[in-house]
């Protein structure tokens, strides 16, 4: 059987690359942690991979704003390749800092448009927050969304978040309406029973409680929570999971690997 190859892009300040690598390996993929300098030197290397990951961390210290310097670098040095890769339909995920990068490059919500129309700004609490939250996949989204990453999940799952700038906002309500209409908001913060949450279960004050979105085609997915930190039941505060051994985060990576196969 074909080995699915995953590229985990790292740079100064990336720090969730090892656990993300482990998560993909657990799902049967090969996962390489590749430094951005290597990729800039050999731009076409990216097309050797089936899946592209922008992992969590503090790229370049999140100086100026979270993910800003890395998205500026990617846009200016790898823009064409990344866009081409995204439009090819291959799975791309951005987790936490990676989500901030996807939004700031403009791969989300629409790689064809390739412009930033949303942002992830400072949490309402003005604090970094590390905690577990509930995430809801709405029925309509479950039915209509093309997102390849969030299949096979129950209505509500829990994942940990850890960020200081995760408040999803838009300068224009129309953009948000479009996301809703196209079923692109795949994860919203919620209570355990799926109902409307308050702080701290919405850890950042996101509009519409948005925690994760995908593009219309469904191959590009960005989210603030960390699925790579919940691949084993052991990692859950109460040691729950989808079976005795694995956590719900694993399903997300498995979905992408299975999609490629």
């Amino acid at each position: 059987m074909k080995k699915v190859k995953t590229l985990i892009l790292r740079t100064a300040g990336t720090n969730c690359d090892y656990e993300t690598q482990s998560a993909f390996e657990l799902c049967g993929a090969v996962a390489d942690r590749v430094h951005i300098n290597t990729l800039i030197e050999k731009k076409n290397k990216i097309f050797e991979y089936d899946i592209l990951v922008f992992p969590g961390g503090f790229s370049y210290g999140d100086d100026i704003a979270s993910g800003k310097i890395l998205s500026n670098e990617i846009k200016n040095k790898l823009g064409d390749e990344i866009k081409k890769y995204a439009l090819s339909g291959r799975p791309i995920v951005g987790i936490c800092n990676g989500f901030q990068v996807l939004v700031k490059i403009g791969l989300l919500p629409d790689p064809k448009f390739f412009k930033q129309i949303f942002t992830l700004s400072c949490n309402d609490s003005d604090k970094f927050e590390c905690r577990w939250v509930y995430l809801k996949v709405e029925k309509k989204v479950r039915r209509e969304s093309n997102c390849i990453w969030t299949k096979n999940l129950p209505d509500v799952i829990s994942l940990p978040v850890a960020h200081g700038e995760g408040k999803f906002v838009s300068g224009n309500e129309k953009f948000l309406d479009n996301l809703n209409k196209n079923s692109q908001i795949v994860f919203r913060y919620s209570l355990k029973d799926g109902s409307e949450p308050e702080y701290p279960l919405v850890p950042n004050g996101s509009i519409g409680h948005v925690a994760g979105i995908c593009n219309k085609k469904g191959n590009i997915f960005g989210l603030m929570p960390h699925p790579e930190r919940y691949v084993f039941t052991l990692q859950h505060p109460a040691r729950e999971g989808f079976n005795d051994r694995y956590g719900w985060g694993k399903v997300i990576f498995q979905n992408a690997v299975d999609f490629v196969i």
Partner: peptide, 15 residues
């Protein structure tokens, strides 16, 4: 001033 060093790098990236 750690941010200043990052800005200088990013300005280079801008071309």
């Amino acid at each position: 001033d750690t941010v200043s060093e990052s800005v200088i790098k990013a300005v280079k990236d801008l071309g």
